[in-house]
Amino acid sequence: MTISKLGYIELNSCGALVRASELCDKARGLSPGELRLGGELCVSGYEYLGEDFETSLIKNLQAALKPGALLGFTHFNGAFNEFILLSHEKIIYKQSKFKLFTPNNEQDKFSAGIVEDIKLFEVGGVKIGVLICFELRFLELWERLKGADIVLIPALWGAKRGEDFKVLSQALALQNRCYVVACSDRDLKFGCVYAPNGEANFECEFDPNLASKFKTSLGIVD
């Protein structure tokens, strides 16, 4: 499987059932080689609609995806706020949120994942890492993703702190010299793909050599 293009998905409808349908429609439009990121809990928000709903959502999304297209977002998986990366065949990767945001009482809604799950995984030789929303604020978690080619940040970020989300996402791209795909789809409505040189895009082609080119331009040698 080859990743050739990066982007995000923003949903504009209201209500979980309608948003689920909109997400499926957008998944259907993804091309082979395209990786798109949805937001944290982008379909249901904090409302748990049951295991059957979540299972059907995943099956419908897989049916909608073309071979070679990838879609990531977070959803309820029992007691966990879980990120999944889907292909048309399977769940390629999953990771539960470790740092819960207590001002929103997330500790009453979810169990926390474990820090060891924040790690790199590979898709077609591309190294990918995930930070879920509030986890973006912790530099020690950035360190766990050193060497990533792509970091995905699905978020449900507060609009009043929107500038923090943008600055931190761009800074992560520059510090770790990787692509960062950031998407917040509720409250703060913002998405962006930051290249390893900090350049911001709505979507962009994935160049696995761009980080090395950027380091060379700065005189940085690993």
Rank of each mutant, 00 (worst) to 15 (best):
P154Y: 03
L85E: 02
G113F: 01
N81R: 13
E82L: 00
F121P: 00
V130H: 07
K160E: 15
V115W: 03
Q95R: 09
E135F: 05
N105G: 01
F101H: 15
D164E: 15
G147A: 11
I150G: 02
L172K: 02
V115L: 14
L145P: 08
C178T: 09
I92N: 06
F83H: 05
S111E: 11
V126C: 15
R177K: 09
L86Q: 01
E82M: 10
K99A: 11
K146L: 03
E116A: 13
T102R: 12
H88Y: 09
N105C: 15
S111L: 13
W142D: 08
S87H: 09
I84F: 06
K94Q: 12
L174I: 14
L172Q: 03
F165M: 07
K97R: 12
K94M: 03
E140W: 13
R177Q: 15
F138H: 12
G129K: 08
S87Y: 03
I84D: 00
V130P: 05
I84V: 07
I91K: 08
I153L: 02
K94I: 04
F98P: 01
Y93L: 06
K160A: 15
S96Q: 14
E135N: 11
D149M: 04
L100H: 09
L85W: 05
R137M: 07
F165R: 01
G147R: 10
D108H: 08
I92Y: 02
K94L: 06
E116P: 12
Q95V: 00
Q107D: 11
L86C: 00
L131G: 01
E122P: 08
E143R: 08
K127V: 10
G124M: 14
I153C: 02
G162R: 10
E135R: 08
E135K: 06
R137T: 12
C178Q: 04
Q175A: 15
V167I: 15
A155V: 03
L168I: 07
H88W: 10
K127L: 10
S96V: 02
C133H: 09
G162Y: 10
V151T: 04
V130Q: 04
D117I: 00
L145T: 07
W157C: 02
V151S: 08
V126Q: 04
L100E: 09
I91F: 09
L141T: 03
S87T: 13
C133F: 08
I150T: 07
C133I: 04
E106A: 05
E163F: 13
K127Y: 10
N105H: 12
Q107F: 02
K119S: 12
H88M: 01
F121D: 04
V151K: 02
A159R: 15
L139A: 14
V115R: 15
A159Q: 14
Q170I: 00
F138I: 08
